[in-house]
Design a protein around this nucleic acid. Structure first.
Length: 303
DNA sequence: ACAATATCCTGCGAGC
DNA sequence: TGCTCGCAGGATATTG
């Protein structure tokens, strides 16, 4: 489940691998992933024969800036993986090649290939690029989302327009954070994860940030005092920057575009550490449920 | 205005 | 062995 640090890692790698390349062709076996424009052939018209000028991140969204003022947006949601590789046929061709019928799905031998191999049974969208490269979207649960269109249209779409400030640049200051929190009645854990408030933070990093800031996840956002806001602000910057340094968190199924794991799972303080000792005070980490989401915290340091 | 719930999907592991 | 069930959780749509 990529959050800001994972998406940032992917975007940096994409800038090395696909910037300057032309999109030659695209393929899908699950057109529902494409939200805009309607119809895969229309989608292809927006991107084919256009050059990838730049790749940027906004929250958890990946933005491919294309020639002719077009943008392709990809959101990987829970299980989406962008994988880079050499030109290959898609798994549909593999299926034909091996003589399998429609209901017999071709599967690669390696069980891990959904996370690492640009040709596997979970690839639902593929892009053939100039220079013999291929970019594939693997997505077990088919939640990923892709949109393409005129730059202004995409930048003004609900998906981007409603996002809160980017936490790692100057668009988030202590004052802005204080303002955001002052008008939120929900618990801080939820408020942090709501993309309308701050962009890019999900379940893993909200847990980690609150532990770092020594704030109880159930505390109401508007009840945070000035000192807590400051700690929260520092923790957001520190944890997200550190996680980028560690190339993301692969406790679950996150991989980069080469299929490689991040390292942050090795230094996590609370997420999925239920029952293990808090690294600050030794108290057992507690797992809780809120609105069907799990969270983790230290009941002693996060009062 | 807000909160709780359902929806999209599939794999995995627990329990019977 | 094989089934059902709950869980995973990002974001949006819908109902209360």
């Amino acid at each position: 489940m990529p959050e800001l640090p994972e998406v940032e890692t992917i975007v940096r790698e994409l800038n090395k691998e696909v910037k300057g390349r032309k999109i030659l062709d695209a393929w899908t076996d699950w057109p529902k992933i494409i939200k805009l424009p309607a119809g895969f052939s229309n989608f292809k018209k927006e991107i084919i024969n256009r050059i990838i000028k730049d790749i940027k991140r906004r929250g958890k969204n990946i933005l491919f800036y294309l020639s002719d003022n077009k943008i392709m947006l990809i959101h990987q949601k829970l299980t989406g993986h962008l994988l880079i590789g050499k030109w290959q046929f898609c798994q549909f061709d593999k299926q034909k090649e091996s003589g399998l019928k429609g209901n017999q799905k071709w599967k690669p031998e390696d069980k891990n290939s959904a996370l690492t191999d640009p040709v596997n049974q979970y690839i639902h969208v593929m892009f053939w690029l100039s220079g013999g490269k291929m970019l594939a979207l693997s997505d077990v649960r088919k939640f990923a989302k892709i949109m393409a269109g005129d730059k202004d249209k995409i930048l003004n779409s609900e998906d981007l327009k409603n996002l809160g400030p980017e936490p790692l640049n100057s668009s988030l200051s202590v004052e802005i954070l204080e303002k955001i929190m002052a008008q939120k009645f929900g618990i801080i854990k939820e408020v942090l994860m709501d993309q309308k408030n701050i962009a890019g933070i999900g379940n893993i990093y909200s847990d980690e940030i609150l532990w770092e800031a020594r704030i109880n996840p159930f505390k109401k956002a508007n009840k945070l005092n000035r000192d807590e806001i400051k700690r929260l602000y520092k923790a957001i910057k520190k944890i997200l920057n550190k996680a980028i340094k560690y190339h993301g968190d692969s406790i679950s199924d996150y991989r980069d575009i080469y299929g490689k794991e991040g390292e942050y799972q090795n230094i996590q303080n609370v997420y999925q550490r239920e029952g293990e000792p808090c690294r600050r005070c030794g108290t057992k980490i507690v797992r809780f449920k809120n609105k069907g989401r799990s969270g983790h915290y230290c009941p002693r340091c996060q009062k």
